[in-house]
Design a binder for these strands. Structure first.
Lengths: 151, 151
DNA sequence: CCTGGATAGCTTAACGTTAAGCTATCTGGA
DNA sequence: TCCAGATAGCTTAACGTTAAGCTATCCAGG
């Protein structure tokens, strides 16, 4: 019985390693996500809602299109997410002066107070979760992820 | 003006690094996810549906509770996902003999042919996406993710 | 001016997802 | 035997999400 071709062998081995690496990456990412989502849930915020408030807080008022691009969500989705935030009085929509199609989204006073309180908690949660890795390990992880994400 | 306390300085720096690392990790993971979901979409499968078919294919028939535990989804969700697969004739539900509460989920012939065809494509997509990293880099990434996911 | 293509946001349909609560079944102890 | 607690699956309500298609507005070429 002939030995399997080296190329075939290498392929199998590469595939096994890739699947195993993929599994660990998704597990780590999912756990981190769940942990952070749980923290936001305590403030009655979904991750998308937090993303919108955070963008408005750090970048200032912007239209829904830009918000959607920023948090990588569809236009229809932004209508719902911003609508839910507006219903809670955290943001307010205004017709843009120059362009009648745009709805400029602003933080309200309540919304700004909320995100100003919650953002540091969220950042601390991220820092805490990543604290199991040393600074060098985090640097290595970031480098690998950047390389992987760029592809 | 006094220098900032070392402890405070270290904390800020640690936080900045953690946020940056977190961002790169989520970006890499999200891109990978999107890419794989797109591949499954070509086969008219959602990631959850694929997860169910894959579990049944590799582990054999099992009840919905075990499926939910395997793909980390709620019990109510399994009812919908398995229901959609059943509607398409890819799986079939059977009352378990011993315990009348359990619905044993089986692959149908159609379902098995589908997953037997799609699984290698999915595995190849994962392998291809991770191929931007060398074997050593993948090993390093897996180790870091395992450490992070365990926390 | 005005008309057609582009753009922003909204709506709808479909599915995913969870949490909470319901029904049916099982199981162990009185 | 019988009942109370546990368990599996289902249902519902609410939100997230996308794709596709709609309306209103803008803008540029004729």
């Amino acid at each position: 019985m002939p030995k399997p071709k080296p190329s075939r062998y290498r392929s199998d081995r590469a595939e096994r390693q890739a699947l195993s690496t993929y599994l660990k990456l998704t597990r780590a990412s999912d756990r981190l996500w769940d942990r952070l989502a749980l923290g936001l849930q305590r403030e009655d915020l979904t991750p998308s809602q937090f993303g919108v408030l955070e963008a408005l807080y750090h970048l200032g008022p912007m239209c829904q299109r830009d918000l959607g691009e920023r948090i990588l969500r569809s236009s229809g989705n932004m209508t719902m997410v911003v609508g839910n935030l507006e219903r809670r009085g955290l943001v307010r929509r205004e017709r843009a002066a120059g362009d009648g199609r745009l709805r400029q989204v602003h933080l309200t006073g309540t919304g700004e107070r909320l995100i100003r309180r919650v953002f540091p908690l969220h950042a601390a949660a991220i820092t805490g979760a990543l604290a199991v890795l040393t600074s060098e390990e985090q640097r290595a992880l970031a480098t690998l992820c950047r390389k992987l994400g760029a592809a």
